[in-house]
Design a protein around this nucleic acid. Structure first.
Length: 826
DNA sequence: TACCTGCATGAAATA
DNA sequence: ATTTCATGCAGGTAA
């Protein structure tokens, strides 16, 4: 091997590259470059990535020739019989040592045990580098397990069976960042299939060893690749932890190697939810086994994260039904029977194993667990592990304290599973320890109480820290960053002569820009180059992709390169930004003030009026916040505050409360609108026939007002503007219900905008993906449900006759009004 | 009054 | 839609 070179093996064709200098070209995303499963060095192959790649990687990654040789080439000789075998007869290493696949390609023949032993020895001899030690160890465990459990030979002791009973599937999938093909495959294929197939196979192994039977069960359990595939469908999508196990193992954390083991044999074990699969490491098993009796075999059966009630003083531990029925003695009486369970110290406990009838089902509980739980110093969030001790089939209860691990199997490990456990372990536990250390029992109690209150039922509210970090971006900020998916071309739809861009994919986050306002009050946008970090002035309406550099600055030829100086000096820039920020803040504050003065929940008002609410009720109250909504003040008519306490009939016909006034006002508007609409419809019918004759004149509504579309064209098919009978100039009437904040924004929008502002399109595309709104008014008028459109962009408007823009009516508002009419309210 | 027991309920998970 | 299971709670019992 020449200096700097590296011997690698092509994962695809098996070609050995003795002198590959990968150092300069190392890039795993590049076709042909992959990572060795063991030494993590890159492996190059000039071949085009083929379908074999996926298969091979799926089976457990690839390996470089060095590692293969180090592990004994003999054992890894390819077995060629599968139609998909590679041209030169090479079977990828992973496939060769993967027993199920080995069976598959070998037509059911098992790999020679001696070869695997040799392999194992080779691994043992290997001196792993610090970065790969845990991986190597893991692999060793893997091989040990496989050699003993899969090959039906060499099971010298029960202990072997017990400790190697379940292959640790994670290592087979640890090559998480190898390539996109793998990744995508990984995303689409449930990971635990391998575990399951192996687990099944194990059952076969055991049954064949112990019973040597050839009953139907055995036929059912015969492992095959197809079976493995089938089983993939029956298990939930794996967590991502399997992918990241390498990095975890690099940390050298034993607990991070924790991977759920498929259920051991038992009645109905196949129905056992993965959440209850024992996640016990071999080391822990060995330790327990050693603690108890070196001649015994420990078979982990299931585990359960203790809930608050499990760990509480009641002393009842709810057993998962499937687990109880699979591994505990069958009981017919509700009273159940006493059951003796040994803890890992060898101490025997007697619990009452019983059930309660529950919804035509049963709820199994272990009663009298408090002493044991206390003895083990377990709390909610900790895990109890039930195992079987052979020979004798004794039940053993073990435990695992909740760890502070953050990123673990989704919802599976104590750190995350259940808020009581998860939250406590993530934060409370630390506080708890601290409180313990400080002797601050008060804090401890508070934390405990909080943990209890969160409860396991709030599991769905739990999130990983990084998720929480992401959520720190507010909705408003998120909206500002939304961009159409770059891979997705929009479909332009014409609705009511307005163009709408529809996207088949949800929007993506784009680059954040800063909006400022110059002295004249007009808006400016600033974007920062990803290369030189200089800020460039942009048109206010452009949206930047996630990655943006000066070269993309097509709007300013003078500053379309990173070498171009800043437009203004840094100090001025800061000042501008500050001003812009102030502007934004002020605007927001103004908006809030307006909101307080003029409640936006007018729909709610109308609804409340329908329900017979009286404003006097909350008007009479003191100046303090209302009891219903602490932040709201008397007079607030939001949906929360106006909830009627006791139904209808509180408003008199001459009532002049705010609610009634608003409702009356809106009813009037509605009636006017409806009246106009009816006449417009008639006029439109006549207009159509007329325009067909006259050909080219702008249509005129029955009220004598030209109807404009968004383009300002009077084509008659556009969106009808609000027209009132008493309107003055051009018959325009301001809707009393329109939001003054919106009005302000309306003015800022370019009246000549020919299409719906892009951000609105994005919002439409993102929040209402792949579907057209039900009605045109729904598209045009309804604001985005979450947050608000970007501050720089006003909601869709339509031009009035005098050229100004009017906000389009809220269909929701209309709906409410319609409802009011239906209810016969005036 | 505190604790125990058994059942009911409903959120969450799963089919 | 159904099942599971964490927990609340009413009624009983003991202190």
């Amino acid at each position: 091997m020449k200096a700097g070179g590296f011997a690698t093996l092509c994962y695809s064709c098996g070609t050995v590259f003795e002198h590959v200098n990968y150092c300069e070209r190392f890039h795993l995303n590049e076709p042909g470059w992959r990572e060795c499963k063991f030494c993590e060095k890159p492996i190059h192959c000039g071949c085009v990535v083929s379908k074999y790649l996926h298969e091979c990687l799926d089976l457990g990654g690839i390996s470089c020739i060095k590692c293969i040789r180090a592990r004994g080439t003999q054992a890894l000789k390819p077995i060629q019989s599968h139609p998909n075998d590679l041209p030169n007869g090479f079977i990828p290493f992973s496939a060769a040592w993967h027993p199920v696949i080995g069976n598959r390609v070998n037509g059911g023949a098992t790999v020679d045990k001696g070869k695997l032993t040799q392999l194992t020895e080779a691994i043992e001899k290997q001196q792993p580098t610090p970065s790969t030690s845990s991986l190597g160890h893991q692999f060793k465990q893997e091989e040990n397990r496989l050699s003993s459990s899969e090959l039906n030979i060499g099971i010298s002791s029960n202990k072997d069976v017990g400790t190697t009973i379940f292959p640790n599937s994670s290592s087979l999938f640890d090559n998480g960042r190898t390539d996109l093909g793998f990744k995508s495959l990984y995303d689409t294929m449930p990971q635990p299939s391998l575990s399951y197939s192996l687990g099944n196979h194990l059952a076969t192994t055991k049954s064949s060893v112990n019973n040597n039977s050839t009953g139907p069960m055995e036929t059912e359990k015969v492992p095959s690749f197809k079976q493995g595939q089938r089983s993939r469908l029956s298990f939930p999508k794996p967590s991502k932890s399997g992918v990241t196990i390498r990095s975890q193992s690099n940390k050298g954390l034993i607990a991070d190697n924790r991977v759920a083991r498929p259920p051991a044999e038992g009645r109905g074990r196949n129905q056992l939810l993965p959440r209850y699969w024992p996640k016990i490491t071999d080391q822990e098993l060995l330790q327990i086994s050693g603690d108890l009796n070196s001649n015994c075999t420990i078979t982990p059966l299931f585990e359960k994260v203790l809930s608050a009630s499990d760990a509480g003083r009641i002393g009842r531990l709810v057993l998962p039904k499937a687990c109880a029925e699979a591994y505990f003695p069958a009981i017919n009486q509700s009273e159940g029977l006493p059951i003796r369970i040994q803890d890992i110290k060898g101490k025997e406990w007697t619990f009452q194993f019983r059930f309660w009838p529950n919804n035509n089902s049963r709820m199994y509980v272990l009663e009298g667990v408090t002493p044991c739980i206390q003895n083990m110093q377990l709390q909610a969030g900790d895990t109890v592990i039930f195992s079987r001790l052979d020979p004798g089939e004794k039940l053993v209860i073990g435990c695992r304290k909740a760890t502070v691990s953050v990123d673990s199997q989704e919802g599976e490990t104590p750190a995350v599973n259940g808020a009581a456990g998860g939250n406590r372990t993530l934060s409370t536990k630390n506080v708890e320890h601290e409180a313990m250390a400080n002797g601050d029992q008060k804090i401890l109690n508070q934390e405990k109480k909080r943990a209890r209150n969160i409860g396991l039922k709030n599991k769905r509210l739990l999130m990983h820290n990084e998720d929480a970090m992401e959520l720190k971006v507010t909705w408003e900020e998120a909206h500002e960053l939304l961009r159409p998916s770059p891979t997705c071309k929009p479909t332009i739809s014409m609705i009511e002569n307005c163009e709408f861009e529809e996207y088949d994919e949800p929007p993506v986050f784009g680059k954040k820009t800063i909006f400022t306002a110059n002295a004249s009050g007009s808006q400016e946008q600033w974007g920062q180059c990803d290369n030189c970090y200089k800020w460039r002035r942009l048109p206010p309406d452009v949206l930047l992709p996630p990655k943006w550099t000066c070269s993309d600055n097509v709007w300013d030829p003078d500053r379309c390169s990173c070498s171009a100086p800043d437009e203004i000096n840094t100090k001025d820039l800061e000042r501008v930004f500050k001003f812009g920020k102030d502007f934004k803040t002020r605007k927001l504050a103004e908006g809030k003030m307006v909101e307080e003065q003029e409640p936006s929940g007018l729909d709610a008002l109308a609804t409340a009026a329908v329900l017979g609410e009286t404003i006097g009720e909350f008007g009479e109250s003191s100046t303090g916040p209302t009891t219903r909504h602490p932040r709201h003040r008397p007079g607030c008519s939001c949906i929360v505050c106006i909830q009627p306490p006791s139904g209808k009939g509180k408003h008199k016909p001459n009532c002049f409360c705010n609610v009634c006034l608003t409702v009356k006002r809106r009813f009037k508007t509605l009636m006017l609108r409806k009246k106009k609409r009816l006449s417009d419809q008639e006029a439109e019918m006549a207009q159509k026939s007329l325009s067909a004759l006259n050909n080219g004149t702008a249509p005129v509504s029955s009220t004598g007002v030209e109807i404009f579309d968004r383009n300002g064209n009077g084509n008659g098919n556009g969106i009808e503007m609000e027209v009132g009978e008493s309107s003055g100039k051009a018959g325009q009437q301001l809707d009393l219900n329109c939001d003054p904040v919106k009005e302000e924004e309306v003015i800022m929008v370019d009246a000549n905008a020919s299409v719906v502002p892009l951000e609105w399109k994005n919002v439409l595309a993102g929040l209402v993906p792949c579907s057209l709104p039900k009605s045109s008014s729904e598209i045009e008028g309804h604001p985005p449900p979450v947050g608000a459109p970007s501050p720089s962009v006003a909601p869709p408007t339509h031009p009035a006759a005098d050229g100004t823009l009017l906000p389009i009516d809220d269909p929701m508002e209309e709906e409410t009004e319609d409802k009011a009419v239906e209810d016969g309210r005036s």
